[in-house]
Amino acid sequence: MSHIIVHIVLILGLPPLLLGVIGKTKALFAGRVGPPLFQAYYDLAKLFRKGSVFSTTTTWVFRAGPIVGLVTALLAGMLVPLGNHSAPVSFSGDLILFAYLFALGRFFTASAALDTGSAFEGMGAAREVTFSCLAEPALFFGFLVLAKLSGSLSLTGMLDGPFPKGWGVAGASLVLVAASLFIVLLVENSRIPFDDPNTHLELTMIHEVMVLDHSGPSLGMILYGASVKLFVMGALLMRIVAPFESGNAWVDWGLFVAGMLALAMVIGVVESVMARFRLVFVPTFLVAACLLSAFGIVLLLR
């Protein structure tokens, strides 16, 4: 029971910290002091105190977008195991619910963007749904590899069973899947080199340009939902890459948090050393991610 509470507290409380760690890492590389580690929390607190401006063209869909985006990310967080601890909710087939919850969030955030009638936001929505079309098969090829290795169809079962011994049996497949999931993570969470979360006004933006018209608590929900999504997908990836177990349940929590912070640092390093790709190359990379994890399953099934 106490572990379930820790799980919920981490899902609710930790995600904005990742944004802070990414920011600090990037500042370190640029030789700046950078914003404080807890900047994202301050931003959220500020946004939830502010009023909102709604465009006269918008309807209930515009207000529903951020809500659905946040709720689906949080529910997906209940399905994913954190480190060596199984998820509070786990059943055979939950991996499909996991993927489809994000799709539901995407449906409503993209619709909310179209609700403003702005060409910029339409552009962002189009890119978001287009890139996700290519990310989804990559994710499912990855799931196939994990399911085949573990013989289980639940996220907890998949990530508990074969690790860390799975690395001995099917290391090649797992490397491919991890690489593919890392690309998917970067694309889905709008990180450099695929998207830049910091600049709003460039025409090459994907996710950020969809939320131009949101303000106040709605914008807060979007920021928070995006950080939860990053956290949840990161937890999935870190369990594959670093399946460390200490034997002590509470130390495992510490290992998990350390792993997530390390992932944030890696993302920060990637963002610092790479330039953003031209938008036309993003589909190419996603197809590559698909093929990587497809090779992974071929290696297992041969």
Partner: peptide, 24 residues
């Protein structure tokens, strides 16, 4: 994965229709 692709494409298509017809 093909079924996942179909699902994601359907989301793209229905965002397009719903947005194009009812929103904006």
């Amino acid at each position: 994965p093909a079924l996942a692709l179909i699902g994601a494409l359907a989301v793209a298509c229905f965002v397009k229709v719903f947005g194009g017809v009812f929103l904006g």
